[in-house]
Structure formats: structure tokens, C-alpha cells
Design a protein around this nucleic acid. Structure first.
Length: 408
RNA sequence: GGAGGGAUACCCAAGUUGGCCAAAGGGGGCAGACUGUAAAUCUGUUGGCAACGCCUUCGAAGGUUCGAAUCCUUCUCCCUCCA
């Protein structure tokens, strides 16, 4: 079997590591326990979380033992990395709820029952720490002088940094120490923005325990343009189907930049690299084929094969020609209201395609709304029952947003 | 505790001799054209509504005024320096 380190490297996961040679050797000769921490700042995992998840699964498949560390404790502080402002403090209740939903979501991908993978929560050891003991054991190993030179803090020195956030590094570093002691955890992985936090833990374990542990950072899911992927402005792409429907999830991937397809196939699917490279090499319109594979594979992984097929069928029906597909967002409205006719603006707000009547008005005026095959040009256009076929009517907003109105 | 500076729309950021401010500019978003459901580019748009007008908005609450993002008072939060 290929060395797991090589697998991660070939697929483009690795950004930086401490002692790459040693780590590779270690992963090649024994089963290693490793961990990735997840801050519980949101109520659902996002597409961005797939990178660490996939990297963990690659190692898992190679026989190593992953620890999914939920940040029930560290989230009480909030990681200042990459943040220009103070993080909003979450209530204990909110954090617990987030941790719980992460737990459920991870359980869909990994079986924690047989001990081959571990789900932990750092609230278990951070919440009851004694400050003085903690400072004497952990605090003394951290040089403030050095911390102040770290990118994370340097940026914040301008805008303000409280001790609360400054201390984040210590708590995350302590996690590594705790996991080393409890599970003989030897490796911490995380997004590249976690480099300084990871180094913090790595140095702490080496100093306190004199043990050889390692750190590795993963590529962040960004577009070639540099913006964070899976966290669109419009809203985050969530793994929770209630927040981002499987269809929207599929579409997000279906529409990635040409330049990003190959990398995303490598990072987000288990397809063999030969296949990834073949698909990534497709040119011009052909590369759409690669995007279809990407969208299907990842949707299947996250939402299951059935949902992936539905999303794919819906997309093909919509973009391949006229057609109404099952798996399209829809709104049911009573048949009676269309006897008199419903004005287009009301219909747009009812279906959620427009947040307000003003927005709907703009959409219509700019030619962005299509009913069936007819573009709507009048803002006071009345939609009547006659326009429905088979009790259904498809409204299209722009080129890609479809919504189905069903009479009931 | 003392002195000073700041808080503007999704984000950044103008505006503070009171009216011409629903509030410049940039980013982002949305829509149109072009395309391959891509990128880049160009154009329009981006508080709400019964819409050539009306209503709500410039940290919060009051006040002055015919009229306030702009002036006054109190409060909240943030930053810098001092202790």
C-alpha cells in the first residue's frame, strides 16, 4: 500500500509540515494516531471542512487512527487567526449545540463505535482547568516575545487584541499535549491558517514530554482567484441539507472555475489520480465533463448516491433542455389564488426568489425572470392558472436559479 | 482612574462650516450582453413601500432646530497614550 504521506502529497493536501522525512517514515511503518481540531463556531459543517475530513479519511484508510477533536472548549475563546476583528463570543449553549451537530455529521462519515476512530471534545479537559496550574505547566513554555511576531497577532496589534484571544494559542497547544498523553497522538493537522497554533502544540509536547510529534498543514479550500471556497458571499455552502440543498450543493461544484477542477477532484474525491489528471486536462467545453464528475462524486459522498443522482438529473433536465425535474426547490400554492391571477412580484416573494418586492421589481425590469419559456417584462404581470401545465410552473431567475410552483 | 481618537449600509470607507444625503468611492452580491451552467470583460442595479411620492436607516437613548449622519447631553462598545 502506498505511504499515506505520499497520497496526501500527490493529491495536493499538504501545505507545510515539520520534519517531512521523519513524518513520512513514521507513517510508513506504524499506525499513527493523529488529530484535527474543529472549532464549533457554526451550526453545521461546511464544504471547507471537507478538506480536513478527506485528508483524515485518506490516513484512516491507510490504517492510522484519527481523532476528531471538537472545540467545545477552545470555541469559548475563539481563534483570532485570520480574523481582523474580535470574534463574537458564543454562548456556552450555542457552542454545545454546535458541537452536538458536528458530532452527528461526522458520524455519518466515520464509525466511532469500534475505536478505530475517536471523537473527542476539548471541553472535557479545558473547562475545568485550574488557571494557576495551567500557567505554571503550560504558560511558562510560551514566549510572548515570539508570539508577538506571529502573523496572527501582528495583524491584530493594529486593531486590538485582548488577552482572551491571545491565550487561544496556549489552549490549542495544550490540546495536543492532552491528546498525546491520552491517546499517544503524534500528529496534528489543520488548515494552513493553523500553522502557528500547530507549531505551538508541537513545541509544547516536545518540550514537556520530550516526544517526537509532528505538525502538518493542509491546503485551504480557495479558488484560483484566492477567495475562500465553500464560503461564498451569498452564504456558506453547508453540508447540512436543510441549509444547502443537495441540488445547490451539486450546482456549486458544477460551476467551479476551470482552473480549480483538477485540484478539487484531487482534494474532494477518492478518484484515482490518473483519472483526476485525465479529467483535469480536458479543454474548453470538454472540461464540463470533469465538473459533472466532481459535482456528482462529492454530492454522493456527502448526501448519498440517491441525492446525487437526483441533483444530477435535475441539472441535466434544466440545462439540457426544457423539463421539470423532481429535485428542484418548489413552493406549493393553492390553486384558487391563480384563478384571479397572482401578480409576479407577489409570486417572487412567495417563492423566496426575491427578498422583497423591490428586489423582484428590479429583477423583472432587468429581464431576469422567466416563466416557462416566456421572459416577464411587466412588473405588474399577472400569473394565471392557464400558464401552468400539469399543475406546475417553472420560474427561472437569471440563468441558473430554478423554482417550481405547484398548485394544490 | 486620567487624556485623546473612533463607531456610517453586506464588508471596507467618504461625509461632521446643519438642508443639494437613502448617504461618494471600492469590494462583494444580483441581473443583462458575451459564453461552455466556466473565467475574463462590458453594462445596469444593490433599505422598504400602495413608487416621479412616502416611510425607516448613519452605535443607543434623549434634546436643540422649520430641518440633524452632521450641533448638545447621557449611555454602550472599541482603539491609542498615561497611571
Amino acid at each position: 500500500m502506498a505511504n499515506a504521506f505520499d497520497v496526501l502529497e500527490e493529491r495536493g493536501f499538504i501545505e507545510q509540515t515539520t520534519h517531512p522525512e521523519e513524518l513520512r517514515e513514521l507513517l510508513g511503518k506504524e499506525s499513527v494516531t493523529f488529530y484535527v481540531g474543529f472549532d464549533a463556531t457554526a451550526p453545521s459543517l461546511t464544504m471547507g471542512h471537507l478538506i480536513p475530513l478527506m485528508s483524515m479519511l485518506h490516513l484512516y484508510r491507510a490504517g492510522h487512527r484519527p481523532i476528531f477533536l471538537l472545540g467545545g472548549g477552545t470555541t469559548m475563546i475563539g481563534d483570532p487567526s485570520g480574523k481582523s476583528d474580535m470574534r463574537q463570543m458564543l454562548t456556552k449553549e450555542a457552542i454545545d449545540a454546535n458541537v452536538e451537530s458536528f458530532r452527528r455529521q461526522f458520524s455519518k462519515f466515520v464509525n466511532f463505535a469500534d475505536g478505530s476512530a475517536i471523537l473527542e471534545n476539548n471541553a472535557n479537559w479545558l473547562l475545568d482547568l485550574n488557571l494557576m496550574e495551567f500557567m505554571r505547566e503550560v504558560g511558562r513554555h510560551f514566549s510572548v516575545n515570539r508570539m508577538l511576531t506571529m502573523e496572527t497577532y501582528k495583524a491584530r496589534l493594529e486593531s486590538g487584541l485582548t488577552f482572551l484571544e491571545f491565550s487561544y494559542l496556549l489552549t490549542q497547544s495544550y490540546d495536543f499535549l492532552e491528546l498525546y498523553r491520552r491517546y499517544n497522538c503524534r500528529l496534528q493537522m489543520g488548515g494552513n491558517d493553523q500553522w502557528s497554533n500547530i507549531i505551538g502544540g508541537y513545541e509544547l509536547v516536545r518540550k514537556v514530554e520530550g516526544a517526537s510529534v509532528y505538525g502538518l498543514t493542509l491546503k485551504l479550500l480557495t479558488t484560483s482567484a484566492g477567495t475562500k471556497m465553500g464560503k461564498t458571499e451569498k452564504g456558506t455552502v453547508w453540508l447540512d441539507p436543510e441549509r444547502t440543498s443537495p441540488y445547490d450543493f451539486y450546482q456549486y461544484l458544477r460551476n467551479v472555475d476551470d482552473a480549480d477542477v483538477e485540484l478539487m477532484l484531487a482534494l474532494l474525491t477518492f478518484l484515482p489520480m490518473e483519472e483526476v489528471r485525465r479529467l483535469g486536462a480536458l479543454k474548453d467545453a470538454e472540461i464540463n465533463r470533469a465538473k459533472e464528475v466532481l459535482a456528482f462524486e462529492v454530492t454522493k459522498f456527502v448526501h448519498g448516491e440517491e441525492e446525487a443522482k437526483k441533483a444530477e438529473a435535475t441539472a441535466k433536465a434544466l440545462f439540457g433542455g426544457p423539463g421539470v425535474a423532481e429535485d428542484m426547490p418548489s413552493t406549493a400554492l393553492p390553486r384558487a389564488v391563480f384563478a384571479e391571477g397572482m401578480d409576479i412580484l407577489t409570486l417572487l416573494t412567495e417563492t423566496g426568489l426575491a427578498a422583497s418586492r423591490s428586489e423582484g421589481r428590479r429583477l423583472v425590469q432587468q429581464g431576469g425572470i422567466t416563466l416557462g419559456d416566456e421572459r416577464v417584462t411587466e412588473i405588474d404581470y399577472l400569473v394565471t392558472e392557464a400558464e401552468f401545465s400539469g399543475g406546475e410552473l417553472v420560474i427561472r431567475k437569471g440563468k441558473k436559479v430554478y423554482h417550481r410552483v405547484v398548485l394544490q
